[in-house]
């Protein structure tokens, strides 16, 4: 009894803050989407009947999916190299991956503005090469948003996977090698399967992160490549259409939670080390 009291008292302030400033407001936002005078589903109907908003949703899903797949592939092989590198190099490589991760989203997206702009480095290079049609309009395209997003999430993927790959016991690999397994067999049959749960965790982080991002699509996609994040902001702060914004928010929450729940399930089932 006393313990329960102490436990609740100590965790009380934090619980209070999360309930009061997160659970209640977010629930209120989602509840508001069903409060339309035209019926509980009217706002969702309006969302999915609008070709523009539907396109925004599909575009965001597409961007998030491509970003996730590419980041997972790049991240996995890079993390593999980092985890097998000599110890000295390993820590340097980890530091070099942590640095971009700790540098803010705005700075890292802004960097691509300099690279991809009309007079940016990439275009100057293309002009110098004498490519036909250069300079190309690269900003405000889906490609530029995707490149910047991949750039954003690769460090996260690398660091997540370095931890996972290093947790693979060396004995397992040595045992396989001593039984005659080739390098590629070890990679395909031991290292990769053991890394799958980590890959899924990383993929979920990247997918939800890119699906809900704001700064990157705003800077590199602008109004032309609107995503769910920029649409939410535009509805709320430019159009003052709070019901519309709330609908976007609710769809984002549903998609995010669905992905997180589904993938943690799958990760648990696929974990070969699970007991």
């Amino acid at each position: 009894m006393l313990k329960r009291f102490a436990g609740w008292t100590l965790s009380g302030p934090a619980t209070f803050l999360v309930v009061l400033c997160l659970v209640l407001p977010v629930t209120a936002t989602i509840a508001a989407t069903f409060g339309s005078a035209k019926g509980p589903w009217a706002l969702y109907q309006a969302f999915f009947e609008s070709g523009f908003r539907q396109r925004v949703l599909w575009r965001t899903l597409e961007i998030a999916l491509i970003t996730t797949v590419v980041s997972v592939v790049i991240g996995f092989f890079t993390a593999y190299v980092v985890s097998r590198a000599p110890p000295r190099w390993r820590s340097v490589l980890i530091i070099l991956a942590v640095f971009p991760l700790l540098t803010g989203v705005v700075v890292r997206s802004f960097a691509w503005l300099i690279v991809l702009g009309r007079n940016g480095i990439a275009n100057n290079f293309f002009v110098w090469l004498g490519l036909e049609g250069a300079p190309y309009p690269m900003l405000y395209t889906q490609g530029s948003v995707i490149i910047a997003m991949i750039y954003l999430f690769v460090p996260l993927m690398v660091l997540t996977l370095v931890g996972v790959l290093e947790n693979i016991p060396d004995d397992v690999i040595e045992a396989a090698a001593s039984l005659g397994a080739t390098q590629s067999a070890i990679f395909r049959q031991i290292i990769f399967p053991l890394a799958v749960p980590g890959l899924i965790v990383g993929a979920v982080l990247v997918f939800t992160g890119s699906f809900t991002s704001y700064a990157t699509p705003q800077l590199l996609g602008g109004d032309r490549q609107m995503t769910m994040g920029t649409l939410l902001h535009q509805r709320a702060m430019v159009a003052f259409d709070w019901d519309g914004a709330a609908t976007v928010a609710a769809i984002m929450v549903v998609v995010t939670l669905a992905i997180v729940l589904a993938m943690t399930r799958i990760a648990r089932r696929l974990n070969p080390m699970a007991t």
Binding site: P25, F211, T212, Y214, M252
Partner: peptide, 8 residues
């Protein structure tokens, strides 16, 4: 999602 939290 952070942006949902901000809006809420």
């Amino acid at each position: 999602p952070e942006i949902v939290l901000g809006f809420s």
